[in-house]
């Protein structure tokens, strides 16, 4: 093998560039700690498993939104459309006797993906306001369609008689929600593993480029429309997974899955946790649901007031300053941790 002799500076530059890109996608200790903690929760505090399952599903839904909002810069006020479609697809499938959870999950993701693909062409053009209105409109259309088609969806009464089989043919869904939590967490884990590859891939970088400067993205040769269609479809599929999980773990689907408040809620979750970083969606889901729990216990009537107040404060302080604070706290806790590049 012949290797051309390179001047050291160039070889150094290549090595340095490689190291830099590697460091961008390196698995961080905090990440490992998080997953260990999450899976450890399966073995303790059984009474909280239902809530944890619910949080996990909300997190998955928020992750799907982050993909289009945080990475590709597509604002949506109708992401519940895909969540709802996934839920109904899994529900109707189970109702008609196909109760196997995993295959139901795949079908639900497929149905949501098809809907995402078709509607993606509507959000390609236009600015943020147009997209807000279009996504909102698509979700409303689906809501009303589900309401009218009561022979299929049960209408306002919800889908009745959903029977979910045991997971992998072995684990029945229990009253405490342990199977539900394990199932949801497993799906979230697999999706996160896949997405952390995707966001650091050329495809993922192209999305950020489109978000930051569409004009230049085109000038670089990025087929903007094709990339946006792809990511919207992917995001819809993941939202469909979340919807299917919600249906399968509760054995119930109602019009609520398509409701506007669900689209708004997931947007809130992402604002709380921070967009464009995947894990922000999970942090947001945990914070949001616990806050909701605590606040509604304290003031059952007015908990949304406190959520709203918190949100206003959050936006006023600004995400960046909160991040700095978070980093400072982490640095305090882990003083021995060096930054990968050796910079102070």
């Amino acid at each position: 093998m012949t290797m051309p002799l390179l001047p050291t500076s160039r070889a150094d530059a290549v090595a340095s560039a490689k190291a830099f890109l590697g460091a961008q996608s390196r698995v961080r200790p905090l990440e490992i700690a998080f997953w260990l903690l999450a899976f450890a929760a399966l073995f303790v505090g059984r009474s909280h498993h239902l809530l944890l399952a619910e949080i996990t599903i909300l997190a998955l839904f928020a992750v799907s939104l982050d993909l289009i909002l945080g990475y590709a810069g597509i604002v949506s006020l109708g992401h519940a459309a895909f969540f709802g479609l996934g839920a109904y697809a899994a529900g109707i499938l189970a109702q008609s006797g196909h109760g196997d959870p995993l295959s139901g999950l795949v079908v639900a993701a497929g149905v949501a993906a098809v809907a995402g693909f078709v509607s993606s062409f509507l959000v390609l053009r236009g600015a943020d306001l147009t997209r807000l209105m279009i996504t909102l409109g698509v979700a409303s259309l689906l809501y009303e369609a589900a309401n009218k088609m009561d022979w299929l969806t049960g209408g306002a009464d919800g889908l009745q008689g959903i029977l979910i089989g045991p997971l992998l043919g072995r684990f029945d869904f229990d009253l405490y929600g342990t199977t539900a939590f394990a199932y949801a967490l497993g799906v979230l884990f697999v999706v996160m593993l896949a997405l952390r590859v995707v966001v650091h891939s050329p495809f993922g970088h192209a999305l950020r480029a489109i978000r930051d400067n569409r004009l230049r993205a085109r000038a670089v040769g990025i087929p903007v429309e094709r990339r946006l269609v792809a990511v919207y479809t992917l995001s819809a599929a993941i939202a469909g997974l979340a919807g299917a999980l919600s249906c399968q773990t509760t054995a119930f689907v109602s019009l609520d899955v398509l409701d506007f408040h669900r689209s708004a809620e997931v947007l809130l979750v992402l604002v709380i946790g921070g967009s464009g970083r995947l894990y922000g969606a999970i942090v947001g889901a945990v914070v949001f649901r616990f806050a909701q729990d605590v606040l509604s216990a304290m003031t059952p009537q007015y908990w949304q007031f406190w959520v709203g107040l918190g949100l206003v404060i959050l936006v006023l302080i600004g995400r960046d300053r909160l991040d700095d604070l978070g980093r400072a706290i982490v640095a305090r806790i882990l003083p021995a941790r060096r930054s990968p590049e050796g910079t102070p």
Binding site: L21, V198, H200, S201, P202, H205, G221, R226
Partner: peptide
């Protein structure tokens, strides 16, 4: 993009 690898989503940059 120029080398036709812009759509790769399964490997990191």
């Amino acid at each position: 993009e120029r080398s036709g690898r812009g759509g790769d989503w399964w490997r990191r940059v």
